[in-house]
């Protein structure tokens, strides 16, 4: 039995041949991915630079050459940056208005919830209908 088992083991040549076949499969799998998947090419290029960066090419000096020096005429960029600053100031104003609105709303809620301040609901004067009713002062002024 032991002799049979020994005889069934692949020889060195057989193992070498199998290894060669495996290499062919490995190379084909790379070629197949290169053809079918564009991202794979990018990732393979990154790996060849020693990086496993996914999703974009590894940054190289050639991709950044145009950014090396500030442009001669930077007026447009200065304007754009000033607009960003203005946007920030406007956002500040909007936040302040929100805070004021929340504070006023909160104060109203507190006031209306305070004991003694809970008045019975009053009927609002029919201002809207009066304003549109012919013969009232506002309707006359509009006319």
């Amino acid at each position: 039995m032991a002799e049979d088992k020994t005889n069934n083991e692949p020889t060195l040549v057989e193992r070498w041949l199998r290894d060669q076949q495996q290499w062919q499969r490995t190379i084909l799998s790379y070629l197949d991915s290169m053809v079918k998947d564009e991202d794979f090419l990018v990732h393979l290029g990154n790996a060849m630079r020693g990086s496993l960066l996914a999703g974009k090419p590894y940054p190289t000096a050639s991709t950044a050459m145009s950014d090396q020096e500030p442009p001669a005429d930077d007026r447009l960029d200065r304007v754009l940056f000033a607009l960003h600053q203005l946007q920030g100031q406007l956002n500040d104003l909007a936040m302040t208005l929100d805070e004021i609105r929340d504070a006023v709303g909160g104060a109203r809620k507190i006031a209306s919830a305070a004991p003694g301040n809970q008045k019975p609901p009053q009927r609002r004067p029919p201002s809207k209908s009066a304003a549109t009713k012919p013969g009232t002062r506002r309707a006359k002024r509009r006319a």
Binding site: T26, Y30, S33, F40, H43, A47, L52, A54, G55
Partner: peptide, 17 residues
Amino acid sequence: RAKLDRLHSLLTSAGHY
């Protein structure tokens, strides 16, 4: 070869984007 197979598997799997 095993290393290259592992690299292939890694590069074809969804990476962190």
